[in-house]
Design a protein around this nucleic acid. Structure first.
Lengths: 187, 187
DNA sequence: CTCCATAATTAAACATTGTTCAGTTAATTG
DNA sequence: CAATTAACTGAACAATGTTTAATTATGGAG
């Protein structure tokens, strides 16, 4: 219940609106109860991030697993960019917002993020020889990170914020060019 | 004075430690005085970000303007990654931290960020034909954004956090591969 | 030097935040 | 039904950003 309320508030008003009293009031409880379910607000936010990541990964998993790796990667990118465009506050809460206290995220969170990475890695695998698993992993990391950077820059810069389409073009071009570079440098 | 104190506190303890009372106490003033110099704490943080960006850009400007575009770009990247490694709290405050209130940054901040972009664009210019200024701009945007994403992911992921060297290799590889992709797709 | 006007600075107050905990209510078990 | 356990509350505390009346310092005119 707490997480559902936190998710709704975040989607509608941003993660900064998720306060202890607000969260409790939304489901008809008192603030103190939160601390019997969660360690503190950082814990709430950490689990909220996992819930948001689950949503994103569910969408990514929903793209059909057929076609060339390039086409599949572009489909993943479109889904990612669309998620950031449709749910900007969720994307921000997941990838950009700090825990309320400013403390680092718990260690177990890294394992969740890597689910996104391995998803990209799986799609990219056919492009790499079997003995070059490290290359596939590195490419997946770079594309995942680059995608994040492009969406992040697009959100903060007033330039391309007007046309949401621009981000999609930029992200697609980045991925295709990077893959072309891998092919070119290999030969 | 306020900005200097804020910069020192941020470098040492992170931007979350920059509070109104702390800031005032550090220079021997009372909290209320801040509001005769700044509009509010968001304003302090915004100007602090500009100060940090000035530092980063000063370092980027210090790289020699000779050699091939590729070598010059790699030098820029090394400086960027080194800055993030040596001053992680400043990098975080500049690129990742939200304003205290969660409100968006003022419009004039975008103009400052674009200084970094044009710097990369200048280095990349010789690689593009004169009529393809848009291509150079897009490449600069992608590299700047990708660099941000790689450093951001490296910081949040426990995987490569241990060896700070990994980030540099990843960033260099990303840039070179992306440029190779541009060359390959053009022919 | 004195007096006054202006500027600079303060200290206290207010609302809101996360968090704790003794006390109260609800549920469950023997 | 009684007693134990669990769930929950509401008031309190410290710390936050921000405002403002009061105070102090500054500087110029006579």
């Amino acid at each position: 219940m707490f997480l559902n309320a936190a998710l709704e508030t975040t989607a509608a008003e941003g993660i900064e609106a998720v306060t202890a009293r607000r969260l409790a009031a939304d489901i008809g409880y008192s603030p103190g109860t939160i601390y019997q379910v969660f360690e503190n607000l950082d814990d709430v936010v950490a689990q909220l991030k996992v819930a948001i990541l689950d949503r994103l990964i569910a969408r990514l998993n929903a793209v059909p697993a057929r076609g060339t790796p390039e086409k599949r990667l572009l489909a993943l990118i479109d889904v990612y960019v669309a998620f950031a465009a449709e749910e900007p506050r969720l994307w921000h809460a997941l990838f950009e917002a700090d825990p309320p206290s400013g403390a680092p995220l718990p260690e177990w969170f890294g394992a969740h993020i890597s689910r996104g990475l391995t998803l990209v890695e799986t799609v990219l695998a056919p492009l790499f020889k079997e003995e070059d698993k490290a290359g596939a992993a590195r490419a997946a990391t770079t594309i995942w990170a680059g995608l994040h950077g492009i969406v992040s820059l697009a959100r903060s810069s007033a330039v391309s914020r007007a046309s949401g389409q621009e981000t999609k073009v930029l992200a697609r071009d980045f991925a295709l060019t990077y893959l072309a570079g891998i092919a070119a440098r290999r030969t």
